[in-house]
C-alpha cells in the first residue's frame, strides 16, 4: 500500500478524477455553436444572394425572412427586384441606411434571442463557453458564481417572450416554403411544383417547428403550469404532445440549427448560380 497526497479540497480548472474524455462534449458544443455564429454573422454582413429566383424559383433564405426592407442596389435584375419587392413588407430600405445593414439584421435578433435564452442551449453554452462548469464533476476556473439568480443572467427569464416571436416566425417560414412551391413558368404565370429547394425549405420549417414547439416555456404555458390537467382535457393533450417534442429538445435544437444554416447555404448557392435547383415537377 502506498499513500497519495491528493486532497478532496483540491480545486483548479479542469481538475477531476473522471477517466473519460469529458472535454469532448463541451469542445464539440463550442465548435458547433461557434461555427454557426460565425457563419450567420458573416451572412448577415454579406447580405446578398438570399433570394433565389433563377430558373423560376422563389426560395427565400430563413436568415433573411421576413424581409422588412430591401436595399435597391444598382445591378439587381428585374426578376430579382420584382421578387424582393413582392416579399418586402415595407418596400425599399431608406437611403440613409448603410448597405451593410442587410435585411437579416432586422430579424435575426428574434431567433438568436430565442436560442440564446433556450433552456437547453443555456446549459450547453454555460459549459462550453463559460466553463461553468466545463463538465459535470470537473473543477471550474472561477470561485465566484452568480448563476441566473442575479444580473445579468436573470434576464434569461424572458425566454417565453422570445418564444412568442419565434412561434410567429414558424408560420412566416411556412408561408415562405409554400411560396417556394410556386415557380414562374416561361409564360410568366406561377405554377405549382416541387424542387429540391422546396424540400429544403419545408425541412427547415419542420425542424424549426419541432424545436420551437418543444420549448420548455411553451410546455409550461400549454399545461405544465396547472396542477389539475384532468380538468382541461385539450390542454392536457397538448401538454402531452409538447412533452414528446420536449423530451428530444436537444436533438431538435441541433438538427434545426444545422438545417437552417444549410437552407441558407442552399439558397445562397442557387441564387449565386453555383448550384442549379432540381425540379421534380
Amino acid at each position: 500500500m502506498a499513500n497519495g497526497q491528493a486532497s478532496l479540497s483540491d480545486t483548479g480548472f479542469g481538475k477531476t478524477m473522471r477517466r473519460d474524455a469529458w472535454w469532448v462534449q463541451p469542445l464539440l458544443t463550442f465548435l458547433g455553436l461557434s461555427a454557426f455564429i460565425v457563419y450567420s454573422t458573416w451572412r448577415a454582413f454579406y447580405g446578398q444572394h438570399f433570394l433565389a429566383v433563377e430558373g423560376g424559383t422563389n426560395y427565400l433564405s430563413p436568415f433573411f425572412s421576413p424581409i422588412v426592407y430591401f436595399h435597391d442596389l444598382p445591378g439587381l435584375s428585374a426578376d430579382l427586384k420584382g421578387a424582393l419587392a413582392a416579399h418586402a413588407w415595407l418596400g425599399t430600405m431608406p437611403g440613409w441606411v448603410p448597405h451593410w445593414v442587410s435585411p437579416a439584421f432586422l430579424i435575426l435578433w428574434a431567433p438568436a434571442g430565442f436560442r440564446f435564452t433556450c433552456y437547453y442551449y443555456r446549459g450547453a453554452y454555460y459549459k462550453a463557453f463559460w466553463a461553468d462548469p466545463i463538465n459535470c464533476s470537473v473543477s471550474e476556473p472561477r470561485d465566484n458564481y452568480r448563476g441566473e439568480q442575479k444580473f445579468p443572467l436573470i434576464f434569461q427569464n424572458i425566454h417565453r417572450y422570445f418564444f412568442y416571436v419565434a412561434a410567429v416566425f414558424i408560420f412566416i417560414l411556412g408561408y415562405d416554403a409554400w411560396q417556394g412551391m410556386w415557380f414562374v413558368a416561361e409564360d410568366g404565370d406561377r405554377k405549382f411544383g416541387l424542387g429540391i429547394g422546396s424540400l429544403v425549405l419545408w425541412g427547415n420549417v419542420i425542424l424549426l417547428g419541432g424545436y420551437t414547439f418543444g420549448c420548455h416555456s411553451f410546455r409550461h404555458l400549454i399545461g405544465g403550469g396547472i396542477n389539475k390537467l384532468s380538468k382541461a382535457p385539450v390542454r392536457s393533450k397538448c401538454y402531452e404532445c409538447v412533452g414528446c417534442l420536449n423530451a428530444k429538445h436537444m436533438i431538435w435544437a441541433w438538427c434545426s440549427l444545422v438545417w437552417v444554416g444549410f437552407t441558407d447555404l442552399y439558397v445562397w448557392m442557387c441564387a449565386s448560380g453555383t448550384w442549379t435547383d432540381f425540379r421534380f415537377f
Binding site: R122, K127, D132, P133, S137, Y145, G147, E148, I154, H220
Partner: peptide, 27 residues
C-alpha cells in the same frame, strides 16, 4: 432557484432516472 444553470448534471447521475432538470427544476 436562479443559481441552477441547467447543466443537467443532476439528471445524469440520478440512479432512479428522475428527469430532475426538465420535469422538476425548469417547470
Amino acid at each position: 432557484i436562479g443559481y441552477c444553470n441547467i447543466t443537467k448534471c443532476c439528471t445524469n447521475v440520478c440512479p432512479e432516472h428522475i428527469t430532475i432538470t426538465d420535469n422538476a427544476i425548469i417547470p
